[in-house]
Simulated scan of single mutants.
Amino acid sequence: MFLSASVKPSGPLRFQSQRFAYTVTWRGGSCEHFRLAPAAFRAQLEEWVREFVAHGHQVASVVRVVEQEDADGQDTSLVVVGLVHASGSVYVESRGYDDPLWQATLTGSDTDETLTPYALAGVAAELVVAGNLCAFLQWKSLEWDRKSGTR
């Protein structure tokens, strides 16, 4: 955000990006900005996950939003889909700060896992749900950006 030197606000300016809230203050004629804690991003993710489930998606897995710290110690939040029919999880997260596109990481154990046909079908169904959740969160992020006027 760029402010002209001729702008003289009477108080602090506040704006919000997808993950962070900012407050811009003036001191001695110069502008300083401070990045605050993520703008209720974890709460927003929890709400979106509840909305996803409320739409009728059959979620057998345990889905939770957990803290994840970046290199600066900020909570960037992460959605974890724990697999029921096999060991491992799917981590769902946005690609970066203020990036509305999402990605998923599939983790497993260090050993091979032998599954029955039914367990394999269960894992496949869980992965479909994780993929749908990832697409839903990306859609919600894009919708949020569109409504906020940032994209």
Rank of each mutant, 00 (worst) to 15 (best):
M1D: 13
F2Y: 09
F2C: 02
A5F: 02
P9M: 06
S10T: 08
S10F: 10
S10A: 12
L13W: 00
L13Q: 02
F15H: 11
Q16H: 11
S17E: 07
R19K: 11
F20D: 00
A21D: 12
A21N: 06
A21G: 14
A21V: 04
A21M: 05
V24G: 04
T25P: 02
T25V: 15
T25M: 11
W26F: 10
W26E: 15
R27Q: 13
R27D: 11
R27I: 04
S30P: 00
E32A: 11
H33G: 06
R35M: 15
A37M: 11
A37V: 08
A37G: 09
P38E: 02
A39V: 02
A39N: 15
R42D: 05
R42K: 14
R42P: 00
A43D: 12
A43T: 07
L45R: 07
L45T: 05
E47W: 09
F52I: 06
F52R: 00
A54S: 15
A54R: 14
H55W: 07
H57Y: 11
H57Q: 13
Q58F: 04
S61F: 09
S61L: 06
V62Q: 15
Q68E: 14
D70P: 02
A71N: 07
D72K: 00
Q74N: 14
S77L: 02
S77I: 02
S77Q: 03
L78H: 01
L78N: 05
V80P: 03
V81A: 07
G82N: 09
A86P: 06
S89G: 00
S94H: 14
G96R: 01
D98M: 07
D99M: 07
L101F: 09
L101C: 10
W102P: 00
W102G: 00
W102H: 10
A104R: 08
A104C: 06
A104Y: 10
T105V: 13
T107F: 04
S109F: 03
S109E: 13
D112N: 11
D112C: 07
T114Y: 12
T116H: 10
Y118F: 12
Y118G: 13
Y118W: 12
A119H: 08
A119V: 04
A119Q: 15
A121Q: 14
V123G: 01
V123L: 15
A125P: 02
L127W: 12
V128Q: 13
V129P: 10
A130I: 06
G131H: 10
G131K: 01
G131A: 14
N132Q: 15
F136I: 03
L137M: 07
Q138L: 09
K140W: 01
K140H: 03
S141Q: 09
S141M: 10
E143R: 13
S148Y: 01
S148C: 08
G149I: 11
G149T: 10
G149A: 08
T150W: 06
